[in-house]
């Protein structure tokens, strides 16, 4: 790929041909405020927050502007500042001021943009309108939709379309009544939504927010335990509990994508019905027992049924190491090849 050199606020950087100005800046760790851009999606140019001045004359949106060799970009030109401030103030003026109790607090692109631009109470008062009072859609068991927080960036719509090809949601209505909606404006749980949560993880504010989300203490890189795709996951841990699952963007298989089971189907792990001690059947009922008791009984019984009186069924759910030892046990200790698993079911 051929390289070009552009200048952003006096700094020369190199970029790949075909990149946008915003991408080139981000590749060098330079922040240009933006709201409707997402690296996984095609640029939409909707929010106009990412405006810059190009070659000292043209104001353009950096998320759609391809780089050209020798291009000179200013992000702090007075005209750019003025447009950007107005745009951001218009969006913020419409937004509920409930930041401290909001799921996205500290992790919100709108906060970041507002801080960067320096939104003031005076500025907002010029635009302040009544916050729209649309009831929240709480129908999905895993996430809520709070339309009053929505900035209409369309990232969710494009995610569901471009990445998932499901098209469960779209814009509905026009002008100030615009909102994100399902076909026929039904609750999302009654739409064709597959609850993958891909839109939720990309929403820059908390208009789409996971229900009862807990911030993990730390994350552990692992693999989803459901299906054979083997998506990379980051298990979010708090104490001895898994409280979240995120897609591992560095995993070559799923590059961050997950389905509903992988992302939200983790509550079985800390389920109260998990088995926690061995059980031995006595007089027809299973009773708690110690490991020693259980192992002694098994060793005695298995020793008496070596050879073809014995069979083991391993599992497609457990690790390679687990399976290896079970077949080794069956063959080397029990003396039979009666070992299979549920591959066929």
């Amino acid at each position: 790929m051929s390289k070009v050199t552009i200048t952003i606020d006096g700094m020369q950087i190199s970029a790949d041909e075909g990149m946008t100005v915003l991408e080139a800046a981000q590749a060098h760790g330079l922040y240009i405020p933006n709201l409707c851009n997402h690296p996984d999606l095609k640029p939409a140019g909707l929010c106009r927050v990412c405006v810059v001045k190009m070659d000292d004359w043209k104001v353009t949106v950096s998320c759609k502007q391809p780089v050209k060799d020798g291009m000179v970009i200013s992000t702090e030109d007075p005209e750019v500042q003025k447009i950007r401030r107005n745009t951001v103030e218009l969006i913020v003026a419409d937004h509920p001021m409930t930041c401290l109790t909001c799921e996205a607090d500290g992790n919100c692109e709108l906060q970041r943009v507002a801080h960067y631009v320096g939104v003031t109470p005076e500025g907002l008062n010029r635009y302040r309108r009544k916050i729209r009072n649309i009831p929240m859609d709480r129908s999905n068991p895993f996430f809520d939709i709070d339309h009053s927080k929505c900035i209409l960036c369309g990232i969710c719509v494009r995610t569901c379309d471009e990445l998932q090809n499901i098209n469960a949601i779209d814009y509905a209505q026009r002008g100030v009544t615009s909102l994100i909606s399902t076909l026929g404006n039904k609750p999302i749980a009654d739409s064709r939504c597959e609850s993958c949560g891909e839109c939720v993880v990309r929403c820059p504010v908390a208009a789409l927010a996971p229900k009862g989300a807990q911030e993990p203490m730390y994350e552990v890189k692992s693999i989803c335990s459901y299906c054979g795709v083997g998506c990379g996951v980051m298990l979010g841990v708090r104490g001895q509990k898994v409280v979240s699952v995120e897609g591992d963007r560095n995993n070559p298989v799923n590059k961050g994508s997950l389905c509903v089971k992988g992302r939200y189907g983790y509550k079985f792990i800390n389920h109260p019905e998990r088995l926690s001690t061995p059980l031995i059947k006595k007089n027809g009922t299973l009773e708690e027992a110690s490991w020693d008791e259980a192992l002694d009984l098994i060793a005695e019984k298995f020793s008496g049924s070596k050879g073809d009186k014995f069979a083991a069924l391993a599992s497609a759910r457990i690790t390679n190491e687990d399976n290896y030892l079970i077949q080794k046990f069956t063959r080397a200790v029990m003396g039979t090849n009666n070992i299979d698993h549920c591959a066929r079911l």
Partner: peptide
């Protein structure tokens, strides 16, 4: 073939099958 369960490929690879070793 799209293997259904998370480690069905691995259990086969590991010889959890009656006719083959790992």
């Amino acid at each position: 073939p799209l293997r259904g369960q998370n480690n069905v490929q691995g259990s086969c690879d590991m010889g959890a099958l009656p006719d083959v070793y790992p």
